[in-house]
Nucleic acid binder design. Structure first.
Length: 529
RNA sequence: GGGCCGCUAGCUCAGCUGGUAGAGCAACAGACUCUUAAUCUGUGGGUCAAAGGUUCGAUCCCUUUGCGGCUCACCA
């Protein structure tokens, strides 16, 4: 009974899985696809497509289905412009109009430009529990794997032209061919196809050199299908059952519409699709920017959000709506929301049944390893508190963990990741007011009057003698006493204490702060006065 | 011009297959003889863009209108 309910979850990934099964029939194996041109940094917006597929894949698998999850790198695409953030732009400029797989990687990390972008993604995806099978289109085209597809396209030249013309303002010319050719002389796509012999011979002109040549596309690597034909050809080739798209593709007259018709010429059927919206960024402070706008990739996001929470951001939002990934103070709330979701999952926070079902599914899908859902909640420390602890210990994660005595092994494991994120956030994105550091011997002493010095000494003595057995509230009485006994106004005294402890005029609520810092540290710092 | 998506409390949004609405922040009120996105408790606040329609009943479905945004029509 409860099992049935789980399957009929209202989560969009589950609904999509049901729809795929309904529309594609009850198959033994489903193929889910995603892909992109690695012509620049693969940013977090592109990641949305990957994780959207991953979630649907998981939903299908949880229904007992076998799923092939493929990710196509369109690395036989053309290098159109030199990105601003790359070294040696003048070298790269020489490769414009050539396939990106033939462009050198001027950073020196990979064997070519496309590969450099690919490797970066392939290395990080396992961190968030995503394991697609990668397909490399340059390699496939160049090894003549798509000869049949290219021939089919040529054979259906007129039908394809008619389909594309339905949505074009300018109809394609009578001379148009549904293929594009990279020049065998220069590797550039600045060519014009002139004819096809009905078999494997294509005659083209290199527009730059003015040379004309006939090539055998079953034996040479130069021929490629343009996007609106390439996409459906690959749907047919792989038997794709599901592939989402951005709203540029999934709109009337967009490439999904034409591909849906073209794919039938290849003997295939269009996959079930769904549209995802773009991702905005918030609070990056313009730190990472290339080619004009702010760009963040998965690495940037994983710096401040744990893998579960990165997934959570996408799991909890319907793909068809835009949302922002925040690097500012919203981060605190996101962590809080996730912890709430976790508490609901473990029944620690009572909510209505419907809400519970929803959060439960979100929590499951947010976990990195779908076979290893935690059996106990995390050691929930508010993110804000972690930030304070880290600043006391100057970012030393292990020392902070050492202060949390009763955490289990699995909790420590998760906490460690969270602490690293918290520290990254403090040092890179947190507002200035949020940051502080305990003073130590090298720091200059605060100028104090005699009575202020005496107050600090009283404060130190109270800390030494009473801090450990006092409650926060009780201890604050001692703070007031230290001020009053020396004729100081509270605000003035607080200011002095903060200056002495952290070199700033303000800080976290004092009594609690001192308790968190611990007697020894505070006494040590104040012993300079 | 076509298509799509929004329009819900001052702000940011939830509201998943129709039963007259919710969360955070802000506001207000009390408590804390220190404060920063900031301590706790409590309170107020919405003709769910507008008008029609279907229904016993609509924020949710249909139609029209308005406002905002995105996208296609060139390439991918």
């Amino acid at each position: 009974m409860s099992n049935e309910n789980r399957i009929e979850s209202a989560h969009w990934a589950d609904q999509m899985a049901e729809r795929i099964i309904r529309e594609k029939g009850d198959k033994e194996m489903y193929t889910c696809a995603s892909g992109i041109t690695p012509s620049g940094t693969v940013h977090i917006g592109n990641f949305r497509e990957i994780i959207t597929v991953d979630l649907v894949v998981r939903a299908l698998r949880q229904r007992g289905k076998k799923v092939r999850f493929i990710y196509s790198w369109d690395d036989y695409d053309v290098f159109r412009k030199v990105p601003k953030n790359m070294p040696k732009p003048e070298v790269l400029a020489q490769y414009l109009r050539k396939p990106i797989t033939l462009v050198p990687d001027t950073t020196g990390y990979a064997e070519n430009y496309a590969r450099a972008n690919e490797v970066r993604v392939e290395k990080i995806l396992p961190t968030v529990g995503i394991f697609p099978e990668y397909l490399y289109q340059a390699e496939r085209y160049r090894s003549n794997r798509y000869v049949k597809g290219i021939k089919t396209a040529l054979e259906h030249r007129d039908e394809i032209r008619a389909i594309l013309d339905e949505y074009r303002t300018e109809p394609l010319s009578k001379d148009w061919y549904p293929v594009s050719v990279f020049s065998s002389f220069t590797d550039k796509d600045t060519t014009t196809v002139l004819g096809w012999d009905g078999e494997y011979g294509i005659t083209y002109r290199d527009d730059e050199l003015g040379k004309t040549e006939t090539i055998d596309f079953s034996k040479t690597p130069y021929t490629k299908l343009p996007w609106r034909i390439d996409w459906p050809m690959r749907w047919a080739e792989e038997g794709v059952d599901f592939e989402p798209g951005g709203k540029d593709h999934l709109t009337e007259g967009g490439s999904y519409d034409t591909s849906k018709k073209v794919v039938e010429l290849f003997g295939g059927k269009a996959p079930v699709s769904m549209r995802y919206d773009f991702i905005k960024l918030k609070g990056m402070g313009g730190k990472i920017s290339s080619s004009g706008g702010e760009v963040a990739d998965l690495y940037d996001v994983l710096e401040i959000y744990t893998p579960e929470i990165v997934r959570y951001l996408f799991v909890g939002t319907r793909p068809n709506s835009e949302f922002a990934i925040s690097f500012d103070l919203d981060v605190l709330k996101i962590y809080e929301d996730y912890d709430n979701c976790e508490r609901i999952y473990f029944g620690l926070l009572p909510v209505k049944e419907q809400r519970r079902e929803k959060e439960r599914r979100i929590y499951e899908l947010s976990q990195v390893d779908s076979d290893r859902i935690p059996t106990e909640p995390g050691y929930q420390v508010p993110f804000r508190h972690l930030c304070n602890l880290l600043q006391i210990y100057e970012g030393d994660v292990e020392k902070v963990i050492g202060t949390l005595k009763d955490a289990t092994e699995s909790q420590v494991e998760r906490l460690r990741v969270r602490l690293v994120c918290a520290w990254n956030w403090i040092t890179k994105y947190a507002p200035e007011e949020f940051r502080w550091a305990l003073q130590n011997e090298g720091d200059p002493l605060v100028e104090v009057t005699d009575s202020e010095r005496q107050a600090l000494r009283d404060f130190r003595r109270y800390t030494e003698e009473h801090l450990d057995e006092c409650s926060e509230k009780e201890f604050s009485e001692y703070i007031y006493k230290a001020a009053a006994d020396n004729g100081l106004e509270n605000p003035d005294f607080f200011r002095i204490v903060y200056l002495a402890l952290i070199g700033k005029e303000k800080g976290p609520k004092l009594a609690g702060f001192v308790k968190v810092c611990g007697r020894d540290k505070v006494v040590e710092i104040l012993s300079r006065y």
